[in-house]
Amino acid sequence: MQNLSVQNDTKNREDSSYRLKLWIGRILSYIFLIALAAIMLLPFFWMLSSSLKLEKDVFRFPIEWIPANPLWSNYATIWTRIPFLTFFANSTKLTVIITFLQLATSSFAAYAFAKLDFKGRDTLFLAYVASIAIPWQAYMVPQFIMMRKMGLVDTHLSLILLQAFTAFGVFLMRQFFISIPNELLDAARIDGLSEYGIYFKIMLPLSKPALATLTLFSAVFVWNDFMGPLIYLNSQSLKTIQLGLRMFIQQYAADYNLIMAASLVSLIPVIVLFLAFQRFFIEGIASTGIHG
């Protein structure tokens, strides 16, 4: 797309001053991008360097970015301090189940909100969006009481039920579905496809970037969620990675070196997920199948 248009431009005006300008623009862009990347990655560098220090040196100022005596042993220590593998397994389980349910139910509902006309659609949708406006802190306690009545406290099911059906997912998917041309759907209807057929055969294949985005957001949210597991999980065998991280923090002193080592390890799945989903954001429109 932009790729193509850039090529067209160069064909039209092949004079050298234009090329020079283009090159200068490119170089400036790269300088800007690299400087920005450095700032964005600072927390990563800080986490890395802290994870290799003695605890007392973590907050020492000025920061020693490259520790003179890197303590790689911190990475070994974290595995002995808490049952990390259990926590990883629990977090993975929750993340996979919640993300899957979230994708399935939100995109399903979003199709109706985006492309179908029915009684009460706009009111219902507004209710969804408005619900995002109420801070969780405000209804945390009523929700907990309800879950306790249902006997779901200290189960993974409670968290799954709480987080799988969010307004956020529906809203995000609706916005992406809206931009898919109606002509495509009408053509399919004329061909005799039911609404369910349209959803599965047309909407889903066309929404890969959107589904990838929701997967990423949902997975990052569940993986990094702290308050939910804190309130709903008691048993050691059910706890998640974020609860495990907090277990390092003591009352009067904090082992920040170990926390950062553990945080970095816990980030690996998220980063891998992001890299794996990259291609859906670069994938050109040609591959998603709209040819007018």
């Binding site: 509902a109 109706a112 909100f113 209710a127 619900s131 009523p142 929700q143 059906f165």
Partner: peptide, 22 residues
């Protein structure tokens, strides 16, 4: 009914576990 059937799976969970406590 078709339209509602699309919304139902999400709405059910959303209404019980989020809307009511809200």
């Amino acid at each position: 009914l078709t339209c509602y059937s699309f919304i139902l799976p999400n709405f059910l969970g959303f209404a019980i576990f989020t809307l009511i406590p809200m």
